[in-house]
């Protein structure tokens, strides 16, 4: 059984069919690129998968369970987490608090235990404090743990958002243009980091990238959409030589 499978997924905004007949299969530990020109519907696919938008048709199966209609936070708890195209951090909070937020649903102490600071509170808070630091270390950000998120350089903010998404302990991580706004060197490093994350955490990653050259290097499978419809699926080699894909990109 695939980790994630969509069946004829689609959504209309008024008259506009932003995404339609969207069928995709993601296996455990797979790294898949989702590419397509601007406005093709990539972010909309993420919003559908994460429950931000309710699809007008089709279904989404996560480990065989249809998750259509579930709330975004429920879907996170079931194992899909994401980053945003326009970074969404808790800007005024520290870097480490940003990460700690994402452990919330894995923690157990009750409101009363938190208010009374029972031993369980200290134990769990200590645990997630260390876990958050460990995660930041992976991204070479432990020195920034107490910096305010909004004061980080752009590239670090992107990394923090990925770290935060990982903290939710996903089975599938959705990254929306994580390299946007980065210079080529930063982008290169990021792509390596993404590869590393996949291997280290043994998770599947669906990566949106506007620039198709970038994903070719690291993804084993690529899905290309244009005007909300999948126009090609295959290995980077296959995609490179696909006439429709070349057309969509040249026609842009």
């Amino acid at each position: 059984m695939a980790l994630l499978e969509t069946k004829d997924l689609g959504i209309n905004f008024g008259g506009l069919r932003a995404v339609g007949d969207f069928n995709i299969k993601i296996e455990d530990n797979q790294l898949i690129g989702l590419i397509g020109p601007n406005g093709a519907g990539k972010t909309t696919v993420f919003n559908l998968l994460t429950g931000v938008y309710l699809p007008t048709e089709g279904s989404i199966y996560l480990n065989g369970e249809n998750i259509v209609g579930k709330k975004p936070y429920e879907i996170v708890q079931k194992g899909i987490s994401r980053t945003f195209q326009n970074i969404r951090l808790f800007k005024d909070l520290s870097v480490i608090d940003n990460v700690k937020m994402a452990f919330h649903h894995k923690m157990n102490y009750s409101i009363g235990a938190g208010i009374l600071r029972l031993p369980y509170y200290w134990k769990e808070e200590k645990e997630i404090h260390e876990k958050a630091l460990d995660l930041l270390k992976l991204f070479n950000m432990e020195k920034l743990a107490y910096a305010t998120a909004k004061n980080l350089p752009y590239g670090e903010q992107r990394k923090l958002e990925i770290a935060r998404a990982l903290a939710t302990n996903p089975k599938l991580l959705l990254l929306d243009e994580p390299a946007a706004g980065m210079n080529p060197q930063e982008t290169n490093e990021l792509m390596k980091t993404i590869h590393f994350i996949r291997d280290k955490f043994q998770i599947a990653i669906l990566l949106i990238e506007h620039d198709m050259g970038l994903v070719m290097g690291i993804c084993e499978k690529i899905v290309v959409i244009d005007y909300g419809i999948i126009i090609a699926t295959g290995t980077p080699e296959e995609i490179k030589n696909n006439k429709k894909v070349i057309g969509a990109y040249l026609g842009e």
């Binding site: 994460t50 931000v52 709330k71 975004p72 936070y73 996170v76 708890q77 987490s81 994401r82 945003f84 969404r88 951090l89 808790f90 800007k91 005024d92 909070l93 608090d97 700690k100 937020m101 994402a102 452990f103 919330h104 649903h105 923690m107 102490y109 409101i111 938190g114 208010i115 009374l116 600071r117 509170y121 769990e124 808070e125 935060r164 998404a165 903290a167 939710t168």
Partner: peptide
């Protein structure tokens, strides 16, 4: 003490960014 617990963090996260808050579960 509420504000400095995980529940308080959750409350503060809503002030910071409700969509992001939901997106971390």
């Amino acid at each position: 003490t509420l504000i400095n617990s995980r529940h308080g963090r959750a409350i503060i996260s809503i002030r910071e960014d409700e969509i992001a808050s939901e997106a971390v579960g």
